[in-house]
Design a protein around this nucleic acid. Structure first.
Lengths: 229, 229
DNA sequence: GGGTGTAACTTACGCTGTAAGGTTAGGCCT
DNA sequence: AGGCCTAACCTTACAGCGTAAGTTACACCC
């Protein structure tokens, strides 16, 4: 039974679903509520649609995650790779890593699904290709570039995953209490926790410094690798 | 209604559940069927018990994962940290990383839950404490040791997570086909894929070499960091 | 033997991903 | 105009998930 009325075109009734719109809705939801909130029903709800409708545009939930990951990686600019000065591979890679980090900071949920992907999407390939291009034109052999890729590892994608989260919550007093508790059994851990709290790890600010330090450390090492031949 | 019969003690009827037994069952299941097969019902089944019974010994599923992760980390020997020769921090760390890698290879599912933990368990603290001890006694300042921890990152726990899995499946012909397909759009990726396949990445064997190379690269860098002061 | 404590079981709820099939609307051909 | 095709979207259903709440069975102590 259908109620008679002025019929509307599909476009009028709703903007049509597409893979891009589904993926974008997933990214928006993850940005807002975290990666764990991603379910087919929630994403569909975000689009004013039923869960099963998504399957017209996305093969499985994993395919949706693939899309989200690749879209995020696609946000990373690779313009630094286009520098004419091939001797400047170091600052190109530095720029690219920092750009990647900026994107990841905007999508803090991204590292987890990135690390569980099995195959790189087109955007990931494009990015890796750009990195390899910088290295090769900078004088690295194929084998050296391969090593560099392993060494820079996740930092090329902008994240440092720590053994544990040491970005203190900014409360030196609480840190001191924790350190006191740890001291008898784990003196070195306590010592570091205290020091980190004292010297003022102020959230993302000092994490940035730590990221930059580690990145430069690695790039300097690669430079020596290159010079050594 | 109860059928009369010779009553048995709880111990006779079944070996009683404990947190350790639950955790061990989880590890065994994950070793066999992968981390994705871990569900309260499956783990319970492994123990001949109902799912809800696990909650007597484990607060939530996440607590179970915490336990599994910490038990695995607890398998890593830290004897290398007890070396009397404090100048030999480099080989101590090398030994500890390789030992960690051996443990992780025995539990390939471990990296994923490790990376999603938020707080380190006792075994993790013990391990980190041992690493920091080696660094401090080797002459590193607290700040330097902190940097070293960030730089060695996941390698201290024995894993290299790659941007994508480049351990070719050992079929140079297939690799060549893939490379041909990639070449027009991603020439540098294709080049590397071909090279990796040619020079014979033979599965875990060459992954070991790659891991060792990256590890030594980092340790050498740390040594210079130490000497520079 | 009655009370207490503990460990295991049972039931139930609201989620999940997705298979199978139903409905609707527009485009195209005769 | 009538009929069919196709694509998009919806409905229903199922097996599995984590876990809250309530129940039972037994060991032990007074």
């Amino acid at each position: 039974m259908k109620i008679a009325g002025p019929s509307k075109t599909a476009a009028e009734r709703r903007t049509p679903l597409t893979r891009d719109r589904v993926v974008a809705a997933g990214i928006g939801l993850a940005d807002r509520d975290g990666i764990e909130s991603i379910s087919m029903r929630r994403v569909a709800q975000e689009l004013g649609v039923e869960a099963m409708s998504l399957y017209t545009h996305v093969r499985t939930k994993d395919d949706l995650l693939d899309g989200m990951v690749d879209a995020v990686i696609g946000e990373i600019p690779t313009t630094a790779a286009d520098s004419a000065d091939s001797a400047d591979w170091k600052s190109s890679l530095r720029q690219m890593s920092l750009a990647a980090r900026a994107v990841v900071l905007a999508h803090p949920w991204a590292p987890q699904p990135i690390e569980t992907r099995t195959a790189p999407g087109p955007a990931a390939l494009r990015y890796i290709n750009a990195v390899l291009g910088v290295l090769r034109e900078g004088g690295f052999t194929v084998a050296q570039a391969h090593h560099a890729l392993h060494i820079l590892g996740s930092r090329l994608l902008g994240f440092t995953q720590m053994l544990f989260d040491d970005s203190g919550d900014g409360d030196p007093e609480a840190a001191a209490a924790i350190a006191d508790q740890l001291a008898p059994t784990f003196p070195h851990v306590a010592e570091m926790a205290l020091a980190v709290a004292h010297t003022g790890v102020l959230g993302p600010c000092d994490d940035d410094a730590e990221f930059a330090f580690a990145l430069d450390f690695l790039l300097d090492g690669l430079e020596r690798l290159l010079q050594r031949g």
